[in-house]
Design a protein around this nucleic acid. Structure first.
Lengths: 125, 125
DNA sequence: ATAAAACTTAGAGTCCGCTCTAAGTCAAGG
DNA sequence: CCTTGACTTAGAGCGGACTCTAAGTTTTAT
């Protein structure tokens, strides 16, 4: 447990910001490969697991559904014959990200307009 | 009903992309002011209502919770004494938008890396 | 040796944001 | 007149993504 490459669920939860519940849930639904276990059967997360979890978190926070992430994860565990599907998923996600960026950018000016308006009103009093 | 400034629920649903259910739900929870009614008690949406709904949709799609939107809407229905709160909500939302834009932007390169990788693998075969 | 903390599982519960149902009213066309 | 279809309400149901409980086992610390 002092091994820097071998973290318990709790330690992994702390490092990732996910709860222990969520880590086990992600494993159960196939987002995370069954991780290594201790003699007593407790989960041990490797540096590699941590990196994968970090990637998952970014997929999530940039708007990919858990369902699609599961499909992607499954493909990653299969062979080269899934490259096409994985490529398609990443391209689709890139499009989603670009679309979202546009949406955010274009709404920003409306928000700034409101901020200016309220700020002016405030100064008037 | 031929009045261009007076739309039924269905027409408003079509124009906004929200369902009739959602429009009534938004009114019920205070996101939309009680709209004008026909003699028979049916909802009639004005151009103004449509604009407000459009603004709500952008707040939603850029990540504001319905709860906060309700608070903002309530403030908008109250007086000048709520300018401070409205300003704070808009500033908070601007920060959320900017943060999200950064997050999306920084993850984009990771996605592009994956896309390149899969594309290369594909070409090799 | 033993108490406390952390682990295990399957499955139930929660929160959000709708989405729909049930039961009834109303307006227009044939 | 009567059917069709749109409307009304309160409240139930749903899908997604966790989040927690219950009941039991293991590890760690004293």
């Amino acid at each position: 447990m002092t091994d820097t490459d071998t973290l318990s669920v709790q330690q992994t939860a702390e490092k990732t910001g996910l709860s222990g519940y969520t880590l086990r849930y992600y494993e159960k639904i196939g987002l995370i490969n069954p991780v290594r276990r201790s003699a007593g059967g407790q989960r041990l997360y490797s540096k590699n697991d941590l990196e994968w979890i970090g990637f998952l978190q970014r997929l999530r926070s940039t708007g990919m559904s858990v369902g699609l992430m599961v499909e992607y994860a499954r493909c990653c565990g299969e062979g080269d014959e899934t490259f096409d599907r994985r490529l398609a998923i990443m391209k689709e996600h890139r499009a989603r990200i670009l679309g979202k960026m546009d949406e955010l950018k274009s709404f920003l000016s409306a928000i700034e307009w409101k901020i200016n308006y309220y700020t002016e009103q405030k100064e008037k009093r």
